[in-house]
């Protein structure tokens, strides 16, 4: 009989080598990811004196408070609305930008140049990017001026800035690149011969996109989705600035909690949000086997 090697039977040396391979990742993840999460998790079970003081112990009071509050559901609905809208727009824009770069720009140098152009907004800070919407969308902004000038409207549109619309615009502006990059990456690995073979079989442009390009870009779409969803759901800053304080998200609510020293409820909300995100991400990973798609 052939000797079968199973992990359990491996020599201690091979085991040590395995640990050494993962050690850099462990050294980064444990202090900067695992430890903070554990701290937050512990804090969520502590009691508070209401003035920032924590009493170590085990109570579910914070969770009960968070889950019983009607505000929580409202906040989640608002956040999910932002997430869904941002996801749809970044997906559509990201997919077509990547499609254009991969399949329509023949010159590879030009494609790389255009690709870099997509990253230009990231050469400046997030705050500046958001502020720069004001002269465009504001009451006296370019769009209102133009519409007024054309006589389309009599009063400046107030909905453009400091509104949910502005929040979504800012998110899409910021996050489309997170869709473009992974989708571009998976599209670039599609053999151009496949497209030709599909044309040879009589496929229309739409058929090619539907039957070849989209299914073969699935891993990129899934990765981009994970980026966008987790960033939007974990954000409070854009909502705060772009809605002018008119809208809130899950994170902005527990940011407020931290501001008024309600650490355990903030921690409980954070844990809840983490669980929701983990559920969403695992749902995405269940639909698309990213690992298999990438190694294909």
């Amino acid at each position: 009989m052939q000797p079968r090697s199973s992990p359990a039977q491996k020599s201690p040396r091979a085991n040590l080598a395995g640990w050494l391979y993962v050690s850099p990742l462990v050294l980064v993840l444990v202090p900067f990811f695992v430890a903070p999460i554990l701290v937050v998790l512990a804090a969520s079970f502590f009691a508070t004196d209401g003035f920032g003081g924590l009493t170590p112990g085990f109570t579910l009071a914070s969770y009960v408070e968070v889950l019983h509050s009607a505000l929580t559901l409202k906040l989640y609905l608002a956040t999910i609305k932002f997430t869904a809208l941002t996801w749809i727009f970044t997906l559509i824009i990201g997919f077509f930008v990547a499609y254009f770069l991969v399949f329509h720009v023949r010159n590879q140098l030009l494609a790389i140049g255009l690709f870099l152009l997509c990253t230009v907004p990231f050469w400046t800070s997030n705050i500046i990017r958001m502020i720069s919407w004001i002269p465009l969308l504001g009451k006296e902004g370019l769009i209102n001026q133009a519409l007024l000038g054309l006589g389309v409207i009599r009063q400046p549109l107030e909905v453009l800035l400091f509104s949910d619309l502005a929040v979504v615009i800012a998110y899409v502006h910021q996050l489309t690149i997170f869709m473009i990059v992974p989708i571009f990456n998976s599209m670039a690995r599609i053999d151009k011969k496949l497209i030709e073979a599909a044309i040879d079989a009589g496929a229309s442009r739409f058929d090619i996109m539907r039957l070849i390009v989209v299914p073969m870009s699935k891993s990129g779409i899934a990765l981009g989705t994970i980026f966008v969803v987790s960033i939007v759901m974990g954000d409070f800053f854009v909502v705060k600035v772009m809605s002018g304080g008119g809208s809130a998200s899950v994170v902005s609510a527990f940011y407020e909690d931290v501001g008024v020293l309600q650490y355990p409820t903030a921690a409980a909300s954070a844990v809840l949000l983490t669980l929701v995100l983990v559920a969403i991400v695992s749902l995405i990973l269940r639909t698309v086997d990213i690992r298999q798609e990438i190694t294909r």
Partner: peptide, 18 residues
């Protein structure tokens, strides 16, 4: 178009849809 010509091509390295 290839369909109108009623030709079919078999590609080098086959270009099967993976």
């Amino acid at each position: 178009a290839p369909v109108q010509r009623r030709t079919a091509m078999m590609f080098q390295s086959y270009a099967l849809f993976p």
